[in-house]
């Protein structure tokens, strides 16, 4: 029981991070119908910016932990959003209106480019970060096992919940969210109502990148290491999460992230750590075979 609870906590933490990244996939797919495979790299850049920002702050001797985290979050979101905007601007916008596969191939190219770009600039070695947030709560204790909820886990889960609520409000209530939903359904008509479609799409990339940056910062705080390759794996898993939840659906991405995180944690706990990725991607395959629209996606009705 204690062991199960501990794994659930770990799974939810992991799932929160996947969920944040998955939103970026699902929003971009919703609005322009392409999979942004460079999104995982955007998340990786967020993590790198976090490490760099933390070391710079340490140089200036800013020891106040909440303040440092806030500054790092702000810096990471700004930098990473700029990357998200640029990627859309140079790799996808020129291909809009081209055949469907073109932006996809461009996305894969962008992904490889960004990976190598970070590898060249930052080196291939793993970059460590001194633990910033330490300590935690003990929830339950039995003779041989302690269930711990660390502060960093609380931070991750709370941040994710707040961001997801804020994000749902943004999509449901604001003019930008309404424009995004309109663009999702009919780009041409949206433009004819005076909506700046290019800007709406750019902002979608920026928002997705911002969330990925937060996920990147959180993962850096959680694991304490980053390398240029983390974006690929996390990106694929977040993509699996978006598909599992139903790509194009925002609550689906959150739910999918959570489920993937839990599956991964439990598989690693009760079966084998080596094959935890296998479990995740097996789920992706099963979903695609038996329920291609995902858990919360709407079936694509072909009108004749």
């Amino acid at each position: 029981m204690e062991y199960f609870l501990q794994q659930a906590i770990n799974g939810i933490t992991l799932g929160a991070i996947y969920g944040l990244v998955a939103i970026g996939y699902t929003m971009v797919y919703g609005i322009i119908g392409m999979i942004n495979f460079a999104h995982g790299e955007i998340y990786m850049i967020g993590a790198f910016v976090a490490v760099i920002a933390f070391s710079i702050l340490a140089m200036f001797g800013i020891a106040n932990v909440p303040l440092a985290i806030l500054i790092v979050l702000a810096v990471a979101v700004i930098f990473t959003s700029a990357y998200g905007w640029t990627v859309e601007r140079i790799a996808y916008r020129p291909l809009r209106g081209s055949f469907r596969l073109a932006p996809l191939i461009s996305a894969i190219g962008m992904s490889i480019f960004l990976q190598n770009y970070v590898q060249v600039l930052q080196g291939a070695r793993v970059k460590p970060l001194q633990p910033v947030v330490t300590g935690g709560l003990t929830i339950m204790r039995s003779d041989h096992f302690t269930v711990a909820l660390s502060y960093i886990q609380i931070l991750i889960i709370l941040t994710t919940v707040v961001l997801m609520i804020g994000f749902s409000l943004l999509i449901a209530r604001t003019a930008l969210g309404r424009a995004q939903r309109a663009c999702e359904q009919d780009l041409t008509m949206a433009a004819l109502l005076g909506i700046n479609v290019d800007r709406t799409i750019s902002l979608t990339f920026v928002l997705g990148a911002g969330l990925a940056a937060v996920a990147g910062v959180m993962v850096t705080l959680y694991y304490g290491v980053v390398d240029f390759y983390i974006g690929f794996q996390a990106g694929l898993k977040a993509f699996a999460a978006a598909v599992l939840g139903g790509i194009g659906s925002l609550p689906g991405a959150m739910l999918g992230g959570l489920l993937i995180g839990l599956v991964e944690a439990f598989w690693a706990a009760y079966f084998t750590v080596e094959y935890k990725d296998l479990a995740t991607f097996a789920i992706l395959i099963l979903v695609l075979i038996f329920r291609p629209t995902g858990l919360l996606g709407r079936p694509d009705v072909e009108k004749v």
């Binding site: 943004l170 003019a175 930008l176 424009a179 309109a182 909506i195």
Partner: peptide
């Protein structure tokens, strides 16, 4: 009908933050 009034709302919202 409201989405048709996007530009007025977008300006008034100070590009989204105000609305949030």
């Amino acid at each position: 009908l409201i989405v048709a009034q996007h530009n007025v709302l977008m300006r008034a919202s100070g590009f989204t933050l105000g609305a949030l």
